[in-house]
Write a protein that binds this DNA or RNA. Structure first.
Length: 287
DNA sequence: TCGGTCAACCGGCGAA
DNA sequence: TTCGCCGGTTGACCGA
């Protein structure tokens, strides 16, 4: 476990942990270990440049000459390159591979293990950065969509207000046989707006000369119902209700589709009874 | 001089 | 108990 632990505290260092020499094999001085000093790698520029690794003899020569133990040095580019290649193959380090790499690189197995640990930590940080960037991109995209939806919502609400005013005006004009109801809160949704548009269209059709019998009517509880001879006016999942019996607008039952009642979700009643229609009014159309 | 990078260490934890 | 890994930290090095 302790293989590779540094054994010398720097004479000049204030660090409590500041061991500055790496040990390798036997040490003639200390008996058990010998320091392998790592020298300046490819960078440097310091006046005391030396090869990355120095033999113990040279180390002690210099050490005793200068009374200053070496400080930790960076690995050479060749060592890093080989370590990187090995890391790419497998980011975990088996004991055999550790020894092998250490021998190949002239490093202590402990150094190789430490390098892999640090490399994994760096990789993890990079991965976190990548994940963060990805999440941020997703967030930005969602934010953009959200803003667009908000604007759309605002636009539709404005449209809704305009339509409500028009409906109110149409109400006041008192179209014969038809009552146009006011807008309630339920009409705030986009789907409601769609129906409202349909209603507007129908009102316009109805008020125009030669309109063909479609009507917007007021049902109890402020619900809005569309009486239509053409289901195609309605959006998907919305169906036409014949309201003749309910509001007293009669149409000829010619046994065509116009005489049928259509309800959401596939509910279908042909030639309905008035009670039946009234019972369905609450959830029809605006549900 | 300062901030970033990197080798190395420490303490904790889990597996064998 | 040993061993290896991980997160956090330290200190040397280096470029701006």
């Amino acid at each position: 476990m302790d293989s590779g632990r540094l054994i010398f505290d720097s004479a000049s260092s204030s660090s409590s942990r500041g061991p500055l020499l790496l040990w390798g094999g036997g040490n003639p001085v200390l008996g058990a270990v010998s320091p392998v000093v790592v020298g300046v790698a490819e960078k440097g520029g310091a006046s005391k440049r030396r090869p990355f690794f120095t033999s113990p003899d040279e180390v002690y020569e210099e050490y005793y000459e200068e009374q200053l133990p070496e400080k930790k040095r960076r690995l050479t580019s060749e060592q890093v390159h080989l370590l990187e290649r090995s890391f790419k193959e497998e980011n975990k380090l088996e004991p055999e591979r550790k020894s092998e790499l250490a021998q190949m690189l002239g490093l202590q197995p402990r150094q190789v293990a430490v390098w892999f640990q640090n490399r994994r930590a760096r990789w993890k940080n990079k991965q976190l950065e990548r994940d963060f960037d990805q999440l941020k991109s997703s967030y930005d995209a969602l934010l953009f969509d959200h803003d667009a939806l908000l604007k759309d919502n605002h636009r539709l609400r404005s449209q809704l207000s305009t339509l409500a005013e028009k409906l109110e005006e149409a109400n006041e004009q008192g179209a014969s046989g038809v009552t146009v109801l006011t807008v309630d809160d339920q009409a705030a949704s986009t789907a409601d707006l769609t129906v409202l548009n349909i209603q507007q269209k129908k009102v316009e059709d109805m008020l125009s000369p030669g309109s063909g019998g479609s009507a917007v009517v007021e049902a109890d509880g402020g619900h809005h119902l569309v009486e239509s001879s053409r289901e195609s006016y309605l959006p998907e999942n919305y169906h036409c209700v014949e309201l003749v019996d309910v509001v007293g607008i009669h149409s000829e039952d010619d046994m065509s589709d116009e005489g049928c009642s259509y309800y959401p979700d596939g509910m279908f009643t042909e030639h309905h009874q008035q009670e039946e229609v009234e019972a369905q009014l609450d959830w029809c159309i605006w549900n």
